[in-house]
Amino acid sequence: MKDKVALREEGSAATRIVVGMATCGIAAGARPVLNTFVEEVSKAGLLDKVMVTQTGCIGICQYEPVVEVYTPSGKVTYVKVTPEKAKRIVEEHIKGGKVITEYTIGNK
């Protein structure tokens, strides 16, 4: 297994997907959302470019699961994310570079 896996430097990724995993996030369904991001990024072969990480409570518990996407062009906050929305975020935002405005916090 060791030989099969390409090594990469932690933190070298240009894009970061950060999922809130405090009590509020977990209770609202963040676990399947996080695992969907990990699987979809892996499937897309983007593991060396995109980093999926976890964070605590950022204070907007009513909007959980909250996902922040950091790219060189800035930060986008997606709210009430589901595994289905996560798939679309990877497809359209991460791969396609297009923010899905209807899922963002400014739209709620």
Binding site: M1, K2, L7, S42
Partner: peptide, 16 residues
């Protein structure tokens, strides 16, 4: 011990 330098957070490792 088996993985050596490969981090446990690696996508393939997590799948395994």
């Amino acid at each position: 011990k088996e993985l050596g330098d490969v981090p446990l957070s690696n996508g393939e490792v997590l799948n395994w």
